[in-house]
Protein backbone atom coordinates (compact mmCIF):
# COMPACT_ATOMS: atom_id res chain seq x y z
CA UNK A 1 0.00 0.00 0.00
CA UNK A 2 2.82 2.38 0.73
CA UNK A 3 4.40 1.72 -2.63
CA UNK A 4 3.29 5.03 -4.17
CA UNK A 5 4.78 6.88 -1.20
CA UNK A 6 8.11 5.18 -1.71
CA UNK A 7 8.12 5.90 -5.40
CA UNK A 8 7.17 9.52 -4.94
CA UNK A 9 9.72 9.83 -2.13
CA UNK A 10 12.33 8.40 -4.45
CA UNK A 11 11.35 10.75 -7.24
CA UNK A 12 11.47 13.68 -4.93
CA UNK A 13 14.79 12.40 -3.59
CA UNK A 14 16.32 12.54 -7.06
CA UNK A 15 14.82 15.97 -7.50
CA UNK A 16 16.26 17.12 -4.17
CA UNK A 17 19.67 15.72 -5.07
CA UNK A 18 19.65 17.45 -8.46
CA UNK A 19 18.49 20.65 -6.80
CA UNK A 20 21.37 20.49 -4.31
CA UNK A 21 23.90 19.75 -7.03
CA UNK A 22 22.47 22.62 -9.05
CA UNK A 23 22.73 24.97 -6.09
CA UNK A 24 26.30 23.82 -5.44
CA UNK A 25 27.26 24.35 -9.09
CA UNK A 26 25.56 27.77 -9.13
CA UNK A 27 27.45 28.72 -5.99
CA UNK A 28 30.77 27.63 -7.50
CA UNK A 29 30.05 29.62 -10.67
CA UNK A 30 28.98 32.70 -8.69
CA UNK A 31 32.07 32.56 -6.47
CA UNK A 32 34.29 32.14 -9.48
CA UNK A 33 32.91 35.28 -11.06
CA UNK A 34 32.49 37.34 -7.89
CA UNK A 35 35.80 36.28 -6.34
CA UNK A 36 36.83 37.54 -2.91
CA UNK A 37 36.81 35.65 0.34
CA UNK A 38 34.44 32.92 -0.84
CA UNK A 39 37.15 31.60 -3.16
CA UNK A 40 39.20 30.62 -0.12
CA UNK A 41 36.14 28.78 1.16
CA UNK A 42 35.92 26.82 -2.07
CA UNK A 43 39.65 26.01 -1.92
CA UNK A 44 38.92 24.48 1.44
CA UNK A 45 35.91 22.57 0.07
CA UNK A 46 37.94 21.12 -2.84
CA UNK A 47 40.74 19.97 -0.54
CA UNK A 48 38.27 18.37 1.83
CA UNK A 49 36.56 16.69 -1.12
CA UNK A 50 39.81 14.84 -1.76
CA UNK A 51 40.26 13.94 1.90
CA UNK A 52 36.66 12.82 2.46
CA UNK A 53 36.67 10.82 -0.80
CA UNK A 54 39.58 8.82 0.61
CA UNK A 55 37.76 8.33 3.87
CA UNK A 56 34.68 7.25 1.93
CA UNK A 57 36.62 4.52 0.13
CA UNK A 58 37.80 3.07 3.44
CA UNK A 59 34.62 3.61 5.45
CA UNK A 60 31.79 3.86 2.94
CA UNK A 61 32.90 1.21 0.44
CA UNK A 62 34.90 -1.14 2.65
CA UNK A 63 32.86 -0.63 5.83
CA UNK A 64 35.83 -0.06 8.12
CA UNK A 65 36.43 2.63 10.74
CA UNK A 66 39.22 5.17 10.94
CA UNK A 67 39.41 8.08 13.32
CA UNK A 68 43.05 8.66 12.39
CA UNK A 69 43.24 9.66 8.74
CA UNK A 70 44.31 13.12 9.84
CA UNK A 71 47.66 11.37 10.52
CA UNK A 72 48.22 10.75 6.80
CA UNK A 73 47.13 14.28 5.88
CA UNK A 74 49.66 15.52 8.44
CA UNK A 75 52.43 13.32 7.01
CA UNK A 76 51.73 14.51 3.47
CA UNK A 77 51.26 18.12 4.51
CA UNK A 78 54.31 18.36 6.72
CA UNK A 79 56.56 16.60 4.21
CA UNK A 80 55.51 19.11 1.55
CA UNK A 81 55.86 22.05 3.93
CA UNK A 82 59.28 21.12 5.31
CA UNK A 83 60.84 20.12 1.99
CA UNK A 84 59.60 23.17 0.05
CA UNK A 85 59.81 25.90 2.72
CA UNK A 86 62.96 24.78 4.55
CA UNK A 87 64.90 22.98 1.82
CA UNK A 88 63.57 24.71 -1.28
CA UNK A 89 62.39 21.56 -3.09
CA UNK A 90 60.00 21.57 -5.98
CA UNK A 91 56.36 21.25 -4.69
CA UNK A 92 55.62 18.27 -6.95
CA UNK A 93 58.67 16.26 -5.88
CA UNK A 94 58.01 17.11 -2.24
CA UNK A 95 54.37 16.13 -2.59
CA UNK A 96 55.23 12.79 -4.21
CA UNK A 97 57.70 12.06 -1.42
CA UNK A 98 55.00 12.95 1.16
CA UNK A 99 52.61 10.62 -0.61
CA UNK A 100 55.20 7.83 -0.58
CA UNK A 101 55.84 8.44 3.12
CA UNK A 102 52.14 8.29 3.93
CA UNK A 103 51.73 5.06 1.91
CA UNK A 104 54.66 3.47 3.71
CA UNK A 105 53.25 4.49 7.10
CA UNK A 106 49.81 3.19 6.08
CA UNK A 107 51.36 -0.15 5.14
CA UNK A 108 53.32 -0.48 8.38
CA UNK A 109 50.44 0.74 10.57
CA UNK A 110 47.66 -0.91 8.61
CA UNK A 111 49.07 -4.40 8.82
CA UNK A 112 48.59 -4.81 12.59
CA UNK A 113 45.76 -2.27 13.06
CA UNK A 114 43.37 -3.73 10.51
CA UNK A 115 43.23 -7.04 12.34
CA UNK A 116 41.29 -5.19 15.03
CA UNK A 117 37.55 -4.68 14.96
CA UNK A 118 34.88 -2.52 16.54
CA UNK A 119 35.92 -0.08 19.22
CA UNK A 120 39.45 -1.52 19.28
CA UNK A 121 39.93 -0.47 15.66
CA UNK A 122 38.34 2.92 16.38
CA UNK A 123 40.63 3.58 19.33
CA UNK A 124 43.79 2.31 17.61
CA UNK A 125 43.24 4.61 14.63
CA UNK A 126 42.39 7.51 16.94
CA UNK A 127 45.68 6.83 18.77
CA UNK A 128 47.63 6.95 15.50
CA UNK A 129 46.12 10.34 14.67
CA UNK A 130 47.05 11.60 18.12
CA UNK A 131 50.61 10.21 17.95
CA UNK A 132 51.26 12.04 14.68
CA UNK A 133 49.74 15.22 16.13
CA UNK A 134 51.97 14.84 19.18
CA UNK A 135 55.06 14.35 16.99
CA UNK A 136 54.14 17.48 14.99
CA UNK A 137 53.96 19.42 18.25
CA UNK A 138 57.11 18.02 19.86
CA UNK A 139 59.51 17.66 16.91
CA UNK A 140 60.38 21.30 17.24
CA UNK A 141 63.55 21.37 15.12
CA UNK A 142 61.66 20.24 12.01
CA UNK A 143 58.03 21.26 12.53
CA UNK A 144 58.52 24.40 14.70
CA UNK A 145 55.95 23.01 17.16
CA UNK A 146 52.81 25.09 17.72
CA UNK A 147 54.36 28.01 15.84
CA UNK A 148 54.02 26.08 12.61
CA UNK A 149 55.77 26.60 9.29
CA UNK A 150 54.98 29.67 7.22
CA UNK A 151 56.19 30.88 3.85
CA UNK A 152 55.33 27.66 2.01
CA UNK A 153 55.56 28.37 -1.75
CA UNK A 154 52.46 28.05 -3.96
CA UNK A 155 51.73 25.04 -6.15
CA UNK A 156 53.65 24.65 -9.35
CA UNK A 157 55.99 22.59 -11.48
CA UNK A 158 59.44 23.99 -12.14
CA UNK A 159 59.19 27.68 -13.03
CA UNK A 160 55.47 27.49 -13.73
CA UNK A 161 53.52 28.31 -10.55
CA UNK A 162 49.84 28.90 -9.82
CA UNK A 163 49.52 32.00 -7.66
CA UNK A 164 46.18 33.71 -8.41
CA UNK A 165 43.18 32.72 -6.28
CA UNK A 166 41.20 31.70 -9.35
CA UNK A 167 44.13 29.75 -10.75
CA UNK A 168 44.47 27.79 -7.52
CA UNK A 169 40.73 27.19 -7.49
CA UNK A 170 40.77 25.78 -11.03
CA UNK A 171 43.70 23.55 -10.14
CA UNK A 172 42.05 22.33 -6.92
CA UNK A 173 38.75 21.70 -8.71
CA UNK A 174 40.55 19.58 -11.29
CA UNK A 175 42.23 17.58 -8.53
CA UNK A 176 38.94 17.18 -6.64
CA UNK A 177 37.25 16.09 -9.88
CA UNK A 178 39.98 13.54 -10.52
CA UNK A 179 39.59 12.27 -6.95
CA UNK A 180 35.86 11.74 -7.48
CA UNK A 181 36.35 10.12 -10.91
CA UNK A 182 39.01 7.77 -9.58
CA UNK A 183 36.75 6.85 -6.66
CA UNK A 184 33.95 6.08 -9.14
CA UNK A 185 36.41 3.99 -11.15
CA UNK A 186 37.54 2.10 -8.08
CA UNK A 187 33.92 1.50 -7.04
CA UNK A 188 33.10 -0.09 -10.40
CA UNK A 189 36.30 -2.12 -10.67
CA UNK A 190 36.99 -5.62 -9.39
CA UNK A 191 38.79 -3.97 -6.47
CA UNK A 192 35.75 -1.87 -5.53
CA UNK A 193 33.43 -4.87 -5.70
CA UNK A 194 35.79 -6.75 -3.39
CA UNK A 195 35.70 -3.78 -0.96
CA UNK A 196 31.91 -3.75 -0.92
CA UNK A 197 31.79 -7.52 -0.51
CA UNK A 198 34.09 -7.29 2.52
CA UNK A 199 31.86 -4.53 3.95
CA UNK A 200 28.74 -6.67 3.54
CA UNK A 201 30.05 -9.77 5.26
CA UNK A 202 33.68 -10.65 5.79
CA UNK A 203 32.88 -14.33 6.11
CA UNK A 204 30.82 -14.40 2.91
CA UNK A 205 33.52 -12.47 1.05
CA UNK A 206 36.13 -14.94 2.30
CA UNK A 207 33.96 -17.82 1.16
CA UNK A 208 33.94 -16.27 -2.31
CA UNK A 209 37.72 -16.36 -2.33
CA UNK A 210 38.36 -12.73 -1.48
CA UNK A 211 41.46 -12.19 0.64
CA UNK A 212 39.66 -9.84 3.04
CA UNK A 213 42.72 -8.80 5.06
CA UNK A 214 44.61 -7.87 1.90
CA UNK A 215 41.75 -5.86 0.43
CA UNK A 216 41.23 -4.02 3.70
CA UNK A 217 44.90 -3.07 3.68
CA UNK A 218 44.66 -1.91 0.06
CA UNK A 219 41.59 0.22 0.88
CA UNK A 220 43.43 1.67 3.86
CA UNK A 221 46.44 2.59 1.73
CA UNK A 222 44.34 4.08 -1.06
CA UNK A 223 42.46 6.26 1.42
CA UNK A 224 45.75 7.25 3.08
CA UNK A 225 47.01 8.37 -0.33
CA UNK A 226 43.98 10.65 -0.81
CA UNK A 227 44.55 12.03 2.69
CA UNK A 228 48.24 12.73 2.00
CA UNK A 229 47.41 14.51 -1.27
CA UNK A 230 44.80 16.60 0.56
CA UNK A 231 47.39 17.47 3.21
CA UNK A 232 49.95 18.59 0.61
CA UNK A 233 47.35 20.64 -1.28
CA UNK A 234 46.31 22.31 1.94
CA UNK A 235 49.74 23.54 2.96
CA UNK A 236 50.45 24.90 -0.54
CA UNK A 237 47.06 26.57 -0.91
CA UNK A 238 47.21 28.22 2.53
CA UNK A 239 50.98 28.73 2.69
CA UNK A 240 51.06 27.84 6.37
CA UNK A 241 50.85 24.70 8.48
CA UNK A 242 50.62 24.03 12.23
CA UNK A 243 49.64 20.92 14.20
CA UNK A 244 46.16 22.39 14.86
CA UNK A 245 45.39 22.08 11.14
CA UNK A 246 45.45 18.28 11.45
CA UNK A 247 43.92 17.97 14.93
CA UNK A 248 40.87 16.11 16.20
CA UNK A 249 38.38 18.74 14.93
CA UNK A 250 39.56 17.82 11.41
CA UNK A 251 38.34 14.27 12.04
CA UNK A 252 34.92 15.41 13.26
CA UNK A 253 34.65 17.90 10.40
CA UNK A 254 35.41 15.28 7.75
CA UNK A 255 32.92 12.84 9.27
CA UNK A 256 30.27 15.57 9.23
CA UNK A 257 30.93 16.12 5.52
CA UNK A 258 30.86 12.41 4.83
CA UNK A 259 27.55 11.94 6.61
CA UNK A 260 25.89 15.06 5.19
CA UNK A 261 26.83 14.10 1.64
CA UNK A 262 25.88 10.46 2.17
CA UNK A 263 28.39 7.79 3.20
CA UNK A 264 29.11 5.17 0.54
CA UNK A 265 27.96 7.29 -2.41
CA UNK A 266 30.55 8.43 -4.94
CA UNK A 267 29.49 12.09 -5.20
CA UNK A 268 28.55 12.48 -1.54
CA UNK A 269 31.95 13.72 -0.32
CA UNK A 270 31.93 16.66 -2.76
CA UNK A 271 28.39 17.70 -1.85
CA UNK A 272 29.09 17.35 1.86
CA UNK A 273 32.37 19.25 1.61
CA UNK A 274 30.78 22.17 -0.25
CA UNK A 275 27.73 22.42 1.99
CA UNK A 276 29.65 22.10 5.26
CA UNK A 277 32.33 24.58 4.15
CA UNK A 278 29.85 27.16 2.94
CA UNK A 279 27.18 27.03 5.66
CA UNK A 280 29.24 28.35 8.60
CA UNK A 281 30.82 31.00 6.37
CA UNK A 282 27.42 32.37 5.47
CA UNK A 283 26.74 32.89 9.17
CA UNK A 284 30.14 34.52 9.62
CA UNK A 285 30.55 32.91 12.99
CA UNK A 286 33.69 32.53 15.06
CA UNK A 287 35.98 29.54 14.99
CA UNK A 288 34.70 28.27 18.38
CA UNK A 289 31.12 28.32 17.20
CA UNK A 290 32.11 26.52 14.00
CA UNK A 291 33.44 23.42 15.74
CA UNK A 292 30.42 23.53 18.03
CA UNK A 293 28.10 23.68 15.04
CA UNK A 294 29.91 20.81 13.27
CA UNK A 295 29.67 18.60 16.35
CA UNK A 296 26.00 19.39 16.98
CA UNK A 297 25.14 18.98 13.29
CA UNK A 298 26.85 15.60 13.22
CA UNK A 299 24.85 14.38 16.22
CA UNK A 300 21.56 15.56 14.69
CA UNK A 301 22.39 13.93 11.35
CA UNK A 302 23.40 10.64 12.98
CA UNK A 303 20.15 10.55 14.94
CA UNK A 304 17.65 11.78 12.38
CA UNK A 305 19.19 11.33 8.93
CA UNK A 306 21.81 8.58 9.13
CA UNK A 307 22.16 8.39 5.34
CA UNK A 308 22.78 12.11 4.97
CA UNK A 309 20.86 14.26 2.52
CA UNK A 310 19.80 11.14 0.70
CA UNK A 311 17.50 10.31 3.61
CA UNK A 312 15.77 13.68 3.57
CA UNK A 313 12.92 12.59 1.27
CA UNK A 314 12.17 9.62 3.53
CA UNK A 315 12.00 11.94 6.52
CA UNK A 316 9.70 14.18 4.52
CA UNK A 317 7.42 11.29 3.60
CA UNK A 318 7.37 10.09 7.21
CA UNK A 319 6.51 13.54 8.43
CA UNK A 320 3.72 13.83 5.88
CA UNK A 321 2.28 10.48 6.99
CA UNK A 322 2.35 11.59 10.60
CA UNK A 323 0.71 14.90 9.77
CA UNK A 324 -2.01 13.27 7.67
Amino acid sequence: MNLPTIISAKGRGNLAAWLLWGLAAAFVAYTFVAGGYLIAVLHFACIYTVFVTGLNIFMGFTGQVSFGHNAFAAIGGYTSAVLTATYGWDPLTAGVLGLAGALLCALIIGYPVLRLRGHYLAMATLAIGLIVYEVAVQWDSVTHGYMGISGIPPLGIGRFTVTSDRGILIFLMIVAGLALLSAAGIRRSRLGRAFVAAAGSEDAARALGIDVARYKLIAFMISAAYAAIAGSLFVHAVGFVSPEVFGLPMVVLSFTMLYVGGIGTVGGPALGAIIISVLPESFRTFKDYQDLAYGAALIVILIYAPRGLASLPELWAKWRRRAA
Binding site: P249, F255, L292, L302
Partner: peptide
Protein backbone atom coordinates in the same frame (compact mmCIF):
# COMPACT_ATOMS: atom_id res chain seq x y z
CA UNK B 1 26.05 0.32 14.72
CA UNK B 2 28.82 0.59 17.25
CA UNK B 3 30.69 2.96 14.97
CA UNK B 4 27.82 5.45 14.77
CA UNK B 5 27.59 5.38 18.56
CA UNK B 6 31.31 6.12 18.91
CA UNK B 7 31.07 8.94 16.39
CA UNK B 8 28.05 10.47 18.13
CA UNK B 9 29.70 10.40 21.56
CA UNK B 10 32.91 11.83 20.10
CA UNK B 11 30.87 14.64 18.54
CA UNK B 12 29.19 15.17 21.93
CA UNK B 13 32.67 15.47 23.45
CA UNK B 14 33.53 18.24 20.97
CA UNK B 15 30.22 20.01 21.64
CA UNK B 16 30.76 20.01 25.43
CA UNK B 17 34.36 21.12 24.93
CA UNK B 18 33.41 24.05 22.71
CA UNK B 19 30.51 25.09 24.96
CA UNK B 20 32.94 25.18 27.89
CA UNK B 21 35.37 27.23 25.83
CA UNK B 22 32.66 29.75 24.99
Amino acid sequence: TMFVMILATLAAQIVVERLTLI
